[in-house]
Design a binder for these strands. Structure first.
Lengths: 323, 323
DNA sequence: GTGAAAGCGCTAACAT
DNA sequence: ATGTTAGCGCTTTCAC
């Protein structure tokens, strides 16, 4: 900037004014400065700018589990769209469901002085963020609640959705329903399993541990679990898959066997309507989840010290069972 | 940091040394400083650190078209993995295929003093980046080449893949092959179309404009285009879809009609093996594409002024036609 | 081994 | 309307 000022024969401050499009600068000086900027290939250093002017790095951090998962990719997209409306960019970091990594990444993002944080938590304890929040970095949690910290949160109605899914299968007359879930360690899985059990209990069905399969990490494992359940005595006549990766594996195995068991899957996915079996899903609006979280974050950035809010978004059953 | 120094009864510089884990500091002072850091909730400001120490923001920029597209999400994931190995985070920005947006975002990333740039270009002219490159921000282009700028580039063998796809259909005896593409404005589409035409020409087939459909943006448009081609006189007996969104639309329409036309699609996708029709695809290793680009970028960041390289990665035909 | 002073590139607060 | 000065929070240089 000093060079530009010298080149244009004006003071450093005038260059600053021109670069920041401040009013009240003679057109002639503006032109001279811009010419010098062009000639010297000057680029304003936003780090220095942010450092001096207090805060506002125009950057927000997004912490998710895994960007290659379409659910998180959608969240990243919407968050970036909302951020763009506030002239901000997104630093996206993936925790891979590892609480240690999560904490390191969140601390790193804070050290970079992001204006705010959008977090899908992996761990159980986020009290380490309290210092940062008090120092003025707003945090909004989405999809899962924070642990040990009162903060803005946007969630899905996992419990209600799971209830609706099981009730749908009960309504079709099923009495033995296999439930498959990723990991009981994940909040959304616990909620969905809870909702399913509520519906099963309300229908007067006894708890049967053979009909609940935990630790189903991917489609292949799901297919194996289905095979095992079907080969056991008194097999299920329907399956409730608690996420879409599991759903795909269930469908694959049933199709492979020409089985006529019914399937309801939690989470819709892009090609669900092209699956070789009729498939009913519990759908929700991922974009809306991200939009609400991002807008809440920017509201907090603009105006702090509001009471934390928790928003719960509805799910809906999409019946593709009639084919 | 001043506060911490006062609190610990040491100089500012000693705090800096401790925070940066510099050697040659008495253990007693280290302990006192760390205690003060904890007590005051001190967090090193990485902006100030980067500003003073010259460069190294430990941040790289990734410019893609659309993060919700699984192809780009995979690139973002791998880039983040490689970056993590160099203690760096990723700022991901989406141009939405808009060259104006692309230029604004790239300039913004440079203003934030990212250490390097990973770019899937949308526009044709990237000469505006020359100044930044000369100022020491390395840039690696991937999936598509840069315009008006000599730079490191990692590409796929689009042309060879398309040739192989068409040759596969010719080998099955097809002589009327419908080709559907997104937009001739996109580099990869031009290359793939070029490869397809090379194979068709080599087989002695005349050019027939009715068999090439441009502007197929999404599965619905693809389905409509297929319907129109099939309803025309002398319809195609096979289709070559130049990307996976088109492939999905083609499959959907053929399945809907119980058509027995063959399909080859460029790009593999997650559920391609569960499609209701036999589907052969031209696959490639997206992770490898991103890995090579990211590692090249970090090599350039570590050691500049090397001659720009262009790497072309192979594609392979995955035959799922026998079902 | 530790500290004082200077300054990275910029902007806020004040002159002029 | 323009320029001068101080200083954001940190690291570098060099003296102790």
């Amino acid at each position: 900037m000093v060079d530009v000022a010298r080149h244009a024969g004006v003071s450093l401050k005038t260059v600053s004014r021109v670069v920041n499009k401040a009013p009240n600068v003679q057109q002639e000086l503006v032109d001279r400065v811009l010419a010098a900027v062009d000639e010297l290939g000057f680029r304003r250093n936003q780090l220095a700018s942010a450092l001096r002017s207090g805060q506002q790095t125009s950057t927000v951090g997004l912490l998710i589990e895994e960007i290659a998962n379409p659910f998180y990719a959608t969240i990243a997209q919407v968050a970036a769209e909302v951020a763009a409306g506030f002239d901000s960019l997104l630093i996206t970091a993936s925790s891979e469901e590892d609480p240690v990594r999560e904490e390191r990444l969140l601390r790193d993002l804070c050290a970079r002085r992001v204006d705010g944080l959008l977090v899908v938590p992996a761990g159980y304890d986020h009290s380490f963020l309290r210092a940062e929040v008090e120092q003025g970095i707003p945090v909004v949690f989405l999809d899962r609640p924070a642990g040990g910290l009162v903060a803005d949160t946007v969630l899905l109605d996992n419990r209600g959705g799971a209830r609706a899914g099981v009730e749908h299968l009960l309504g079709e007359g099923h009495r033995r329903i296999g439930v498959l879930l990723d990991s009981i360690g994940v909040y959304t899985m616990r909620e969905r399993l809870g909702g399913a059990q509520e519906a099963l209990g309300a229908a007067g069905l006894p708890y049967d541990s053979h009909l609940v399969c935990d630790g189903v990490r991917d489609p292949v494992t799901a297919a194996q679990a289905v095979a095992q359940m079907l080969d056991a005595p008194d097999p299920p006549t329907a399956f409730f898959a608690l996420n879409n990766r599991i759903t795909v594996g269930v469908v694959q195995e049933l199709w492979h066997r020409n089985s006529t068991a019914s399937v309801v899957g939690f989470d819709d996915f892009e090609l669900s309507h092209l699956m070789p079996l009729p498939l009913t899903v519990i759908a929700y609006d991922t974009r809306e989840l991200a939009r609400q979280a991002a807008e809440l974050l920017f509201a907090r950035i603009a105006k702090q010290n509001l009471w934390p809010r928790t928003v719960v978004l509805p799910t809906r059953l999409v019946n593709r069972g009639l084919r």
